[in-house]
Amino acid sequence: MKNVLNFLEVLFSENDIEKLLKNIISYTKEYIKADRGTLYLYNEENNSLESIVIEGENISKIELKIDKNSITGYAFLEDKILNIKDVYDEKNLKKIDKNLKHNEELDKKIGYKIKSILVIPIKKGNKKLGILELIKKEKSFSKKDEEKLNLIAKFIGIALYNSLTIVNILQKQEEKKILIENIAEAIVITDLDMKILEVNSSFMEMLGFRYTFGEIKDRYLPDILSEISKELIQKTENVKKSWIADELLSDLIKIKILPVIIKDFNKEKLKKIIYIFKYPKG
């Protein structure tokens, strides 16, 4: 039990996704006394399982279809733990499902003939995140091994879900930053009260670098652009009411005002406003 508690502490204290995945495999393999372990994550785009952590040198990544042509793919498909004592016992496999097969390519990938396999889907609630695969080349896994793996799998699912959520958030933030920084026009993103949330470097340049981002963050945008504040406020109110993009034209600059609409529990909501500044040509 002490080892399990130590593992749980590692699970919920590790923020680095790569280290977390390696820790999951390393600990689980030792805890269950397996020869090798592989963690597959579910790829929703092509509906497949991709090996993220696989122990052993010179082993290329493995991609599995979610079907009955592999024990691991079948376990994920049917959402069940499988403890197969002999993966080449076709008679026993057919008792589970008449079309179930062992994928012999796995043996070739790791360099030896597998004897037994223990696999369990990794989930957070009802959401399947991936599957954990443990193998032995000589002995078999016991019923107790199965129970031990089932015990820690729930905690692995929670920790993995939390880490993947953080990764997705960081990726979206980075994508947004890249998008903003690669647009030549000056851009400002505000909340619905016109308080500045984000700007790109072109906007700072437009202001003559009179401010740092820290100085203008959360500032009321019309206060920064006092010369056109009245018109800007009016146009923004129009966009907020209509949810339709509008433009503000002046002798010096053109501002496109865009509503940011998102779906929240199947309801559309206006969340932010984007301002794109463009100097007239000529």
Rank of each mutant, 00 (worst) to 15 (best):
I131G: 01
K80W: 05
L134Y: 00
N238P: 00
V4P: 00
L270A: 05
K33F: 06
L21S: 08
F12Q: 11
K61I: 03
L249H: 13
I122H: 00
N162P: 08
L106Q: 01
N162M: 08
E146P: 10
E227V: 14
K272Y: 14
D191T: 05
K281W: 09
Y211R: 05
G56N: 11
N238T: 12
L118I: 07
F76I: 00
D223S: 14
E268C: 00
L11F: 04
F7N: 00
R36K: 11
K230V: 15
I180D: 09
I17E: 12
T38I: 12
V4S: 02
T190Q: 10
I110S: 00
T72A: 09
F265S: 13
L232N: 07
G282W: 12
A75S: 15
L221T: 08
I52K: 12
E18P: 03
L5K: 09
E231L: 13
I257H: 03
K263E: 13
I62Q: 03
I169T: 11
E78W: 01
E237W: 06
K101D: 07
G282A: 11
L132A: 05
I196P: 07
G125S: 07
L192E: 07
N182Y: 06
F12D: 11
L134S: 03
K256Y: 11
E198S: 07
I135D: 03
K124G: 04
E138G: 00
N6V: 04
D218L: 09
E57L: 15
W243V: 09
K65D: 15
I131Q: 02
D264R: 14
I244V: 14
N69W: 03
L41N: 03
K278A: 11
E78N: 13
N238A: 10
D218S: 13
N15W: 06
G130R: 04
Y31E: 10
L39F: 12
E237C: 02
N200Q: 02
